[in-house]
């Protein structure tokens, strides 16, 4: 029997109010994260990938943001209707999060130990000594040298890479079932990024934990993920196993993203580029959100939003995959990617 997924999001819609305008950064997404699985959410800024993670964490801005529709089922609990108090028991305990900016996510006036003991005091009944021991062992787990000293140091005494390690240990403390990493390596240097990726791989192997990795970097996805979800303008446009998506991307947007990587182009040659830019939420019409930039768009794409077409676990929202309107255009659309 199939194990139930750890996280299951269905038909999620999120709205933001800004003045009189209502912005819809997420327009009906369905996604699953299985136990012990690493799922990558890929997309460019403004595609809604970060809003998705904030929604799961219950951290939408209270006054302006709200879940308009849909359900988020986490380990049997419906999160969308959860009162704040109950949410606090889950947040930092069952679900934890790593943010992009290790510089600003730590409070400069508290020591590392003081900040790390917070979730333990909230969620675990532990004595002071026990808390300290747990923190030190977690700091050691993320590969921080001199953990016994670092625990009494302040964030500014640590380098960027070390701070990101502290953030990861903070997320690990309560041994969460799901860890959400929002661009965990984007702000880091190349060699430090390599260190953090290796660390995340090691953690994922040793803990019984699912990882939701939000990134714009396809290279990070290729190395880390089991399954990939591609988002564009608040929708999921493609979803597949990591090898399938790199071998044969089905959606023209995913194809464009991969082809525009410099390493997939001839040196000094003209890079493939997706023309135009991501539409603002107010500019999305009734058709496919990608239609105005899509090299394969035809009449139907502008008139009607495509449903999800599924084929052996590889799903994509694109009219080109419609068996009815196919008419051989399919072969053109799937441009092979050099691997």
């Amino acid at each position: 029997m199939m194990e139930k997924p750890l996280l299951e999001i269905q038909n999620l819609h999120v709205e933001f109010k800004s003045g009189k305008e209502v912005v819809r950064p997420i327009r009906g997404i369905d996604l699953k994260v299985n136990r012990r699985e690493t799922v990558g959410i890929v997309g460019e800024s403004g595609c809604g990938k970060s809003v998705t993670s904030l929604t799961v964490m219950g951290l939408l801005p209270e006054k302006t943001g709200r879940i308009a529709d849909g359900s988020i089922l986490f380990d049997g609990t419906e999160l969308t209707a959860l009162p704040e108090k109950a949410y606090r028991k889950i947040r930092g305990n069952d679900i934890s999060m790593i943010f992009q900016e290790p510089m600003t996510s730590l409070n400069p006036v508290f020591t590392i130990g003081e900040q790390l003991s917070e979730p333990l005091r909230q969620h675990r009944k532990m004595g002071k000594k026990e808390i300290r021991e747990t923190i030190i062992s977690t700091l050691k787990q993320v590969g921080l040298p001199r953990a016994e000293q670092i625990i009494d140091e302040y964030p500014h005494q640590l380098s960027g890479g070390m701070r990101q390690r502290v953030m990861i240990s903070l997320a690990l403390l309560c041994q969460p079932k799901l860890m959400i990493a929002d661009e965990p390596t984007t702000a880091l240097d190349v060699t430090i990024q390599a260190q953090i990726l290796e660390l995340l791989k090691a953690i994922r192997g040793s803990n019984d934990m699912s990882l939701m990795l939000i990134t714009h970097d396809l290279g990070v996805v290729a190395e880390m993920c089991d399954r990939v979800i591609v988002m564009y303008a608040g929708e999921i446009v493609e979803e597949a196993g990591v090898e399938a998506i790199f071998d044969r991307p089905l959606h023209p947007y995913t194809q464009g993203l991969m082809q525009s990587l410099p390493s997939n182009n001839e040196r000094k040659g003209k890079l493939f580029s997706i023309k135009g830019q991501v539409p603002k939420p107010s500019e999305i019409g009734k058709g496919c959100a990608f239609a105005n930039r899509c090299p394969h768009a035809f009449d139907r794409c502008f008139a009607e939003a495509p449903p999800v077409f599924s084929e052996a676990g590889h799903q994509s929202k694109c009219w080109l995959l419609d068996p009815v309107s196919k008419e051989g255009s399919r072969d053109e659309s799937s441009i092979p990617i050099r691997s």
Partner: peptide
């Protein structure tokens, strides 16, 4: 080390990565 730290292009591409210790 810098060149080996470039993320892979494809999940099947195995990288013999040199991971540097410590920070700059």
């Amino acid at each position: 080390a810098l060149i080996s730290a470039i993320p892979a292009n494809h999940p099947r591409e195995s990288k013999d990565r040199i991971v540097l210790e410590g920070d700059v």
